Computed example of a mutant assay.
Amino acid sequence: MDSLKKNKDFQNVYRNGKSYADKYLVMYVLENGLESNRIGISVSKKVGNSVVRHHLTRLLRESYRLHEEMFHSGWDIVVIVRVSAKNEGYHKLKSSLLHLSNLHGII
């Protein structure tokens, strides 16, 4: 699993990608022409302190990692965590991630 790290990569996905959202997450996807997917997770300070934000990031990374074989290759994926996800557990975030991926047609 590769990560999106550079701001310009995130901006490119925001500008040129498609987005779907649900109660907990917003997901942007854009084809990247590579063999693998790159995933970026964005959690704003509105969601909580750094402990909360890192916890949510780890939950999402892990749910992606465990279901990675379901995803089609060649996508840049940016996931934005909404404030409503703050107190949710792994299973809610996982099903939200998979639901949005399904809407995008990348699984």
Rank of each mutant, 00 (worst) to 15 (best):
G105Y: 09
S101I: 02
H104T: 12
K8A: 14
N102V: 03
D9E: 15
V52L: 02
K86H: 04
Y64T: 02
S73D: 09
E88L: 01
M27E: 09
V43C: 08
H91M: 12
N16V: 01
V81H: 07
G17R: 01
S42P: 00
Y14A: 05
M70G: 09
S44D: 05
R65H: 15
S73T: 10
W75D: 07
H99Y: 11
A85N: 01
Y64S: 06
I39L: 12
V47K: 04
S19W: 07
S73I: 03
Y64D: 06
H99D: 11
G89K: 11
K86I: 03
E62P: 00
L30I: 05
K94T: 14
G17S: 01
D76S: 12
N7F: 13
F71G: 07
V81R: 03
N37I: 12
L59T: 06
S84T: 12
H54W: 04
M70W: 12
L25V: 07
Y28R: 02
H55C: 04
V26M: 10
S101P: 03
L97P: 00
V13K: 01
K46I: 04
S95V: 14
M70C: 07
G17D: 04
H104F: 09
N16K: 12
V52N: 05
G33M: 05
V29M: 08
L97W: 04
S84F: 06
R38C: 00
